[in-house]
Structures are given as structure tokens and as C-alpha cells.
Design a protein around this nucleic acid. Structure first.
Lengths: 262, 262
DNA sequence: GATCGTCTCCCGTCAGGCGGAAGGGCACTG
DNA sequence: CAGTGCCCTTCCGCCTGACGGGAGACGATC
């Protein structure tokens, strides 16, 4: 939001002004949103447009450009991961016709990287690129269970938001659940986000690190709803892990506790 | 490549150094690739890292960060389009188990936005985010047929690369094909990219504009291979178009001839 | 311990970012 | 058709913050 003092910061501030809620902005809106003078915004935007980071539609509004999208596609935790995972997710979807989700952890949040859903599946309010708290979701439980201790502590210490009567908010209980997740290799989220959905998730690994999680979300009112799906999810997750190992060398990062600069 | 004189240019130059071939770079490699002094690269990278545009893996290499990926996801012609199209692509995939592709046009090239493929499908060398010439591909033919005249002229005038003995390289012939594509509403690419693959494509529209194209690629040695698929592809493309119309207002840009500033 | 590669930090200089102001284009209004 | 309120674009002099050489830490490899 606040206009950076630095030149590069302004470039980033302009980009940061775009969000899921506001994917298209006029120059003036952009200037207001970033708090920078119109002429400054204009100059920065011109540079970004020339490069292809921003595009201007026929309505005159600015949008994220195709080049930036393609660049983002190079993120190993974005499309790289997705590329490896999609065929397995397809299989899972074809069998279940339910929501199939792929997610990674970013600090104390889960970021959804891919989601397949038919029209008949339970409506879930996750979107690709979207974020959510870790504890209530299946994928989040998996990712949290295998996160560095320091991250776990911060999550357990912080306020745990309640979404339904079933949401776990007791740190002690949550700790037990996480241990269970580590022991069994799967996580089940029973109506913790909405009262009509249950999910089962399994970890995806690269080397010794858990780099992502895969889940299936179904309509249901008890863990039994996903029991039959568990083997399928585990198998798919392992398949993806294997595929990742096969991928080109040096493509795989690991997620460390906090993204602070060194 | 060449290090920009401006501060913002340096930021973009650093980002541009990442490519499909080189998705991970050390700081020094980055400095060499962009031609900027190490200390300058260091400063720029620090800023980008703090913002989340770049991440550093445990191997010390820099990669495109999750935040940049999420930002790219806001591109209407990227994920926005994909989001609307995926369910229909699923259906098509489930029926055919072949490559199902979604693409848009960027100037005189086709950019692949999504691709679903099983293991048994014909191997095609397209990747999400990747580019290709327009004329030889099914999606490209559709997009070219509905492109502004000025774009068509440039493509037809420019050298038309031959990939197989079947590739159309005669501008006159190509012009006829394009007319045919406009008349029938579908395009068939018969072994124009590889000698064992045939594809059928249909346009996706928003308002009166063709904004994308959908195709199925199958193993085959004549247009007959895709005849049975044609209605399915058309239907799916229309379904996606309808879905786009339903999408939130003001989300849809139109592709104009050249991206020159006005 | 020498040599090469990597990354990080400091700081004096001066190029280039900054943003106020002015001007032009549209659309709607009285 | 002057008046008002948006939008966008361009210009240009001031001065700040970007620039990059250099020094130094660290880690491999020989």
C-alpha cells in the first residue's frame, strides 16, 4: 500500500495493488491505491506495460499481463509442482468427481496451487492462488504437522479462528492431532471449515521434506465419509512425490521457517 | 538481457533472467545474465526477496517466488480464463483421455494457458506458459483466423516454418484455410507439427471477440481421426464462452493487434 | 595455505527518479 | 456551448536515492 521510497519499491507497490478483489484498475485508481502521485504512477505503469507485466484492456483499465503470468508459471512451487501433480489429480477426480486440491505452505498459511472440481462437488471457497489458515484444512494439517517446530509454535500460539462448532481451537488437542497426522501419514479435517464438508489429505515429499499436500474434499458429516478415499489420496500423493524426484535436478526448493532475509 | 538504465528496468531485467530453461539462478549467474554489477544485482534481489517475488532455496539458488506466481494468477487471460474453462476441459478429457489444450494469442504467437493430458496421450511438446507459432497448430489457426487483419498479414508475410511435410507454408493456401475456419467455426491441424498427431480446435468468445481457443490433440494420420471429437470440442468451447459471459463484469480484456501504446 | 568462486556490506558521487503543474480528451449537465 | 468533473499524458528543474567499485567473509577445491 504505502508508496515505497525506492524506485524498485514503486514498481512492486504498483503490482501489489492488484488483487483478487481488484484485478483491473484505472491509472487513477492505481495512483490512489498506492498513494503515489498520478505522474509517478504513470511513469511506472508505462515501464511495466512496455515490458508486458501489465496490459491495458479496451476499457482502458490495467490488468496483469500475460508475460507476468508466464513468469509466475516458472515458480517451482506453483506450476512446476502442478505440472507433476495434475495427471494424478485427474485420476483422483475421475474416480471421485469431488474437489481435489493441491496446496503448499507459505509461512503460517496454506496456499492453494491447484484445484479440480466438477459442478456437483461440494462448494468450497478456495481459489487457486488463494490463502487460508493452516489448522482447519486437511492440507493445512498435513503441512503444519511437517513444518519446522518454530512455525508450529507460532501457529499454535496465535489465535485459532473458529469456523464451525467442529473447528479445533485448543492448542493441546491440535498438538495431538498433528502427532497423529505424522504417525499415520494422513490428515482428516472433519467439518472444520464448513459444516457439510470433510476432507482427507496426504503429504507430498521431495527428499525428506514435505513440500506440498494433496486432498479430496467431500460432502459428509463424519470422518467415515472419506475413509474409502484415503488409500487413493495416499497413493496419488506418493505418485506425485515420485514424479517430483524424477524432475530436472536443482528445481526443488524447500520451505524454511520464516522468509526473513539472511 | 541488457541492463536497463532505469531503476525499475533493473527490477524487470532481473525477473526476465528467469526462463523455462533457467528457472533457478545464483546471484552471480543472475548478475552475469543481466550484465549488471554484482552489488547492483544484490541490492535489487534483496528487494525482490523481501517482497516475495523471488525465493532462495536451500541450495542458495534464486527462484520465482510464490507471491509472484499468485500475482500472475490474477491475469485474466491466464488463470481467470483457465478457471472458467477447466470444468469443461475435464469433461472433454474424461471422454477422450487425450491432450486437451487451451490457448490465447499474444501478437503473432500462441500461448498455452492450460493443458490436460494422461500418460497414454500423444506426447506434445507444449507446456503451460509456453509459446508456439500460430499457423501449424489447431488453436493457432482458430486464433489467427479471428485476429485483426493487420496481424494476419504480418504472419502470412513472415517466414512460415515447416515442421513436417504436411505443414502449410503457402500463404495463399493458408488464407483459404483461415476462411474455411471462419466459415465452419472449427480448425483442424493435420500432422502439421508432428507426423503422428492431428488436432481439432474451436474458438472461445467474449462478446464478439475471440479471446481463446480450445483443442483436442490425438494420435492420427488424417483429419478423420478427429471427426468424432469435433462436436464435443465445439460444445465445450461454447460452454466456456457462456461461462466467461457470466464472470464478474469488467474482467474481460480484448486482444488488439499490436500492444503498442496509444 | 593458495586460489577460486560465492555472497554481503559500505559509502562518496552524480545520474535519474520525482512529482507539481499544465494541457488535452472525453462524457455528462444545465 | 460554456461549465464541471473525471480521465490520461507530457514537461522539466530540483535533489534524493540509485549506483557500483572495492573490501572482506565464507566455503570449496587443489
Amino acid at each position: 500500500m504505502s508508496a515505497d521510497r525506492t524506485a524498485g519499491g514503486k514498481v512492486l507497490a504498483v503490482l501489489a495493488a492488484f488483487s483478487r478483489e481488484r484485478p483491473a484498475l484505472t491509472l487513477s485508481e492505481l495512483a490512489r491505491a498506492t498513494g503515489m502521485p498520478l505522474s509517478t504512477a504513470h511513469r511506472v505503469v508505462a515501464e511495466l506495460r512496455e515490458w508486458g507485466a501489465l496490459e491495458r484492456g479496451p476499457d482502458g483499465r490495467l490488468r496483469i499481463g500475460l508475460r507476468l503470468w508466464a513468469l509466475g508459471a516458472l515458480a517451482p512451487r506453483g506450476l512446476g509442482l502442478r505440472e507433476a501433480a495434475l495427471p494424478f489429480m485427474e485420476d483422483l477426480y475421475e474416480v471421485t468427481h469431488q474437489n481435489v486440491q493441491l496446496a503448499v505452505r507459505d509461512d503460517t498459511e496454506v496456499v492453494f496451487v491447484e484445484r479440480i472440481a466438477g459442478w456437483d462437488a461440494v462448494p468450497v471457497h478456495t481459489q487457486v492462488g488463494g490463502r487460508f489458515a493452516l489448522p482447519p484444512t486437511g492440507v493445512g494439517l498435513v503441512l503444519l504437522a511437517h513444518a519446522p517446530a518454530e512455525v508450529q509454535e507460532r501457529v499454535l500460539a496465535g489465535p485459532l479462528q473458529r469456523h464451525t462448532p467442529y473447528t479445533l481451537t485448543d492448542p493441546r488437542l491440535l498438538r495431538q492431532v498433528l502427532a497423529e497426522v505424522r504417525r499415520t501419514g494422513v490428515a482428516v479435517s472433519d467439518r472444520q471449515v464448513t459444516t457439510d464438508a470433510v476432507s482427507v489429505a496426504a503429504p507430498i515429499t521431495a527428499g525428506d521434506d514435505v513440500v506440498a499436500a494433496l486432498s479430496v474434499v467431500v460432502r459428509g458429516e463424519s470422518p467415515a465419509a472419506v475413509r474409502a478415499l484415503t488409500p487413493g489420496v495416499r497413493a496419488a500423493a506418493r505418485g506425485i512425490s515420485r514424479e517430483l524426484g524424477r524432475a530436472a535436478a536443482g528445481t526443488w526448493p524447500v520451505d524454511r521457517g520464516k522468509g526473513v532475509s539472511g
